[in-house]
Amino acid sequence: MNSLNTVRRGAAAPTQVQPGPVFHLDHLTVNFPARKGVVPSPLQNLNLKIEAGRITTILGRSGCGKSTLLRALGGFIRPEDTGGVVYRQRFLTGPTPDIVMIFQENNLFPWLTVEGNVKFGLRFRQNDKRDQAQAVRDILASVDLKGAARQYPHELSGGMKQRTAIARALITRPAVLLLDEPFSALDISLKRHMHTLIRNLQEQTGTSMVMVTHDVEEAITVGDRVLVLGGDPAQILIDEDTISPGMRDRYSEEYLELQKKVENVIY
C-alpha cells in the first residue's frame, strides 16, 4: 500500500464530475482494535464499485456494517492493509476535504447561528471574505433557510438542522457527500421533503452521494442505485439500478416490485 499514491488532506477538489467510479472497494476488510487483538466487523474482503455523479443508497439491518462501510469511504477508519478504499485511483489513508460526511445528529455547533455553522465550512480555507458572505447567502437560499440565518440550532426543527448541515457540507464543494441515516429522526412528511431537496441538490451540483439508511422507501426514491448489504461476512445481496423516473413514484409498478424484493431480503 505504501508504494501507491495516497490522497492527502488539502488536495484540490474536482469541480467537474469525472466519469467512472468514484470509489472502488478493493478487498476491503475492517477490524476494530480491542484490548486483546481485534474484533472483526462484518466487512471482510468486500469488493464494490460506486459510480461518480450519482446517489448510491445502502440498505441493511442494524449491525450489517453499512455505517462502518460509510466511515471507511470517508477515511475515518483505517481498513486492514490487505485492501482498502480506492478513491479516484488512489488508496484512501485518511479523511480528505473532498469527502464530507453528514450524521444523523450532532452535526451543528450549538453556539453558532445557522449562518455561523455554514460559514464554519469555509473557515479553514483560503478565500475572500466577500465571496464567503455571498456563498453563504446562496447556499442558504438553495436549502430554503434564508430566513433562519440568525437562528441558533436549538431554535430549529429537525429538518432545518439537517438542511443547515447539508448547506455547510455543500458550501465546501466536496466531490463526495456521505450521509449516515441523515433523515431518520424526521417525521414522514419532512423526510419526503428532504428527499426531493437532496435529489435537486445532487442534480444542481453533480456531487457524488452515498447514503446509508434503513428506510426502504427512502433508499429507492432517493437513490440512483440501491445496494442491500447483509450477511456475515457482509455481501451485496441486491444491487439495483433505480435511475428510472418510475422509481420516484411510490405507487408505480417498478417501485413496488423492487420494494417487495428488498423487503423480502431485509425483513
Partner: peptide, 22 residues
C-alpha cells in the same frame, strides 16, 4: 460528541484550530 471532531477535521481544521473553534 465524536461528530463535532469528525465534522471539524473534515472541514479542514488542524489539531490546534479544532481545539480553539470546537
Amino acid at each position: 460528541p465524536e461528530e463535532y471532531l469528525t465534522v471539524s477535521g473534515n472541514l479542514g481544521a488542524s489539531k490546534w484550530q479544532r481545539w480553539v473553534y470546537v
